[in-house]
């Protein structure tokens, strides 16, 4: 545990940040699925009751959402009512941090072997698309261009939702600067 003594604050901050971002994303997933047709289209192909998990290996933070039908997601927090159907697992909290602080695109993280998929790959593709869309929503355009392969041309979301999420983002960018240093 030598590493812990050297940079305790940084590690603590990173863990808190990842947990916070999982909460933000979980809530945002639910919110976006209620208003955005493109997210709904991708989500509709998932079975009703489908449980999606994103987690940090081995037993770290997680977020769980359920497809409750009609392309809508319900955010379950950190515990699943039954075994999950699809799990995207970051190999290390450092990699989760890279992605959740929008320094590395989700698809790049896959390409870079930062995370593993446990479950049907075609569902994983759909969820990645949903996450891309989500990132484009909750991020200012400039940051979002870094986080997703392409910034969608057709974003229409209640400004309230967007600004609410962006408040978290402010916190986020501060974290990045602190931790990066």
């Amino acid at each position: 545990m030598i590493a812990k003594r050297i940079q305790p604050m940084v590690f603590q901050a990173r863990r808190l940040y990842v947990e916070l971002m999982f909460q933000v994303m979980g809530r945002a997933l639910q919110a976006v699925s209620e208003v955005d047709a493109s997210v709904q289209n991708d989500a509709r192909a998932l079975p009703v009751g489908f449980l999606f998990e994103m987690m940090v290996m081995p037993y770290g933070s997680r977020l769980i959402v359920e497809h409750v039908g009609n392309g809508r997601f319900h955010y379950h927090g950190t515990s699943a009512p039954r075994p999950v159907d699809l799990s995207i697992q970051f190999k290390h909290i450092a990699h989760a941090f890279l992605v959740l602080s929008f320094q590395e695109k989700t698809s790049v993280a896959f390409a870079n072997d930062r995370m593993l998929v446990d479950g049907d790959i075609s569902y994983a593709i759909r969820m990645t698309r949903v996450l891309n869309r989500l990132e484009a929503f909750i991020l200012p355009k400039l940051v979002a261009q870094r986080a997703v392969k392409e910034y969608p041309a057709n974003l229409h979301l209640p400004e309230k939702l967007v600004s609410a999420a962006r408040i978290y983002l402010k916190v986020a960018s501060n974290f990045v600067e602190t931790v990066r240093a």
């Binding site: 192909a45 698809s107 896959f110 790959i121 075609s122 994983a124 593709i125 997703v148 392969k149 392409e150």
Partner: peptide
Amino acid sequence: ALDDGAIMFNPKE
């Protein structure tokens, strides 16, 4: 094709 795993690594969305 849109559900195929290979599409994830295509350089363009």
